[in-house]
Computed example of a mutant assay.
Amino acid sequence: MEDLAPGIRFYPTEEELVSFYLHHKLEGNREDLNRVMGRVIPVLDLYEYSPWDLPQYAGDLSGRDPEQWFFFIPRQESEARGGRPNRLTAAGYWKATGSPGHVYSNNRSIGVKRTMVFYKGRAPNGRKTDWKMNEYKAIQGESSSSSSTVASLTLRQEFSLCQVYKKSKCLRSFDRRPIGVEIGQRRAQKSQSDRRARASTHPNPEMVETRSSPESSSSGDHGYHAAIPPQTGESSSIPMPIGSQPSWEWDLLDWYYGEQN
């Protein structure tokens, strides 16, 4: 694990977190796998630490990640006695936000996800921070996603798996690209989607090409020319008046700077 090539990150999907990592941790019947997983996702009583101290306790792979860290959390004594978990820390507390959701595999619910936000201080006067956490719990047995609600599910409580991260006001590091590259890629995607839309509107490309060609422009059939202007040279874009700017380019700039704010 120490000799990974540059650019390789530990970035599992939610399905993989529950169906593989959490499932094998709960079963605990493979010592060799448990040792490897312990280096990737360590067991930690997360609520004994402030969130900004957690990265130093992360595993070999996620410990070097600047944005997200994973931990197995053992069941608290209060939970074992049927009570609620204590999410207080020395600096503040974790507060659940939104409603719990399902984690799916092959259209079946295999786990439950709950998102929490860290607040400094004590309730009800705590100050909201940018630190967040997704807590995953596995479902006991199997459940149909179409007929079961989160409240009716029986969850495995021995361990939960948590993903801790800090909310960012800009693009995440693994999605950051220079603005020119970002806009260039979106221009290419826009052009490709336009070509596909025209192809789906006219299922016979040969007929469209023949009637749009310069040789057939004098045939008197102007219906296709009104819908698809003739193309010249190697450019596939629709001619525009000089000095005008395509509106979607401005939309891309608005999208990019909106993500930065």
Rank of each mutant, 00 (worst) to 15 (best):
213 S>Y: 00
165 Y>F: 14
177 R>V: 14
152 S>G: 07
219 S>W: 09
180 G>S: 10
181 V>E: 08
185 Q>V: 13
193 S>N: 11
210 T>K: 10
179 I>T: 03
200 S>I: 15
202 H>T: 09
177 R>I: 04
191 S>M: 13
173 S>L: 12
190 K>E: 08
158 E>T: 10
179 I>V: 15
167 K>R: 13
188 A>S: 03
213 S>I: 02
211 R>N: 13
192 Q>D: 04
177 R>L: 14
181 V>A: 10
164 V>G: 03
159 F>G: 02
186 R>I: 01
167 K>T: 13
192 Q>H: 06
155 L>W: 12
164 V>L: 12
208 V>Q: 04
203 P>Q: 07
211 R>T: 14
159 F>M: 05
189 Q>G: 06
151 A>T: 14
172 R>T: 06
200 S>N: 09
189 Q>R: 11
157 Q>M: 04
204 N>Q: 09
154 T>F: 00
148 S>K: 11
155 L>V: 13
157 Q>G: 02
198 R>Q: 09
201 T>N: 05
209 E>M: 11
219 S>I: 07
151 A>D: 15
178 P>K: 05
216 S>L: 11
173 S>M: 07
202 H>W: 12
167 K>L: 13
156 R>G: 01
191 S>F: 05
209 E>H: 04
152 S>P: 00
189 Q>E: 14
191 S>R: 11
214 P>V: 10
179 I>M: 12
205 P>W: 03
179 I>L: 14
148 S>Y: 06
218 S>R: 02
178 P>V: 02
171 L>M: 07
158 E>R: 12
195 R>V: 12
194 D>I: 15
157 Q>V: 01
153 L>R: 15
159 F>T: 06
154 T>N: 06
215 E>N: 07
187 R>K: 10
211 R>P: 00
209 E>W: 00
216 S>H: 02
219 S>E: 10
159 F>H: 10
201 T>Y: 08
220 G>A: 04
208 V>E: 05
191 S>Y: 05
191 S>H: 09
210 T>I: 14
167 K>D: 14
212 S>K: 00
190 K>S: 08
194 D>G: 08
200 S>G: 04
205 P>H: 03
203 P>T: 12
173 S>H: 11
150 V>K: 01
